[in-house]
């Protein structure tokens, strides 16, 4: 795969995940604004999440989208403001993406399992 093709795919991945996040974040914000009324309790949260396949799927996709989106954004920030580029940066960014998926899905396992 040529470098041009890799960069083009990163651009597509960044914008496609952005579009998905546009929906996810809007729903997330609406949920937050609704849920904080009267304060958050663990029992309340878990009652909403546990056993809900639809919500689990939604947040599963949400985590995946953000794990694609945030690392690619950080890559641009590292390149432009810290002058860090090359294979080491790309490896670091990939590790961050994997970390986000792992931490995110692990949390979902607790909330929905």
């Amino acid at each position: 795969m040529s470098r041009a093709r890799v960069e083009a795919w990163l651009f597509v991945a960044q914008r496609a995940s952005a579009a998905a996040l546009g929906v996810c974040v809007a729903v997330h914000l609406a949920t937050i604004v609704y849920a904080v009324r009267g304060g958050l309790t663990a029992a309340e949260i878990l009652a909403r999440t546990q056993g809900s396949v639809a919500l689990a799927l939604f947040y599963g996709v949400f985590v995946l989208a953000v794990a694609i989106h945030a690392p690619i954004g950080l890559r641009a920030i590292f390149r432009e403001h810290l002058g860090w580029r090359g294979a080491a940066l790309d490896a670091g960014i990939a590790i961050f993406a994997v970390l986000l998926v792992w931490l995110g899905w692990r949390a979902l396992g607790g909330l929905f399992g």
Binding site: A42, V63, L103, G104, A107, G110, L111
Partner: peptide, 8 residues
């Protein structure tokens, strides 16, 4: 994510 992971 780590904080939500406390639910585990």
């Amino acid at each position: 994510f780590w904080a939500l992971g406390q639910a585990i």
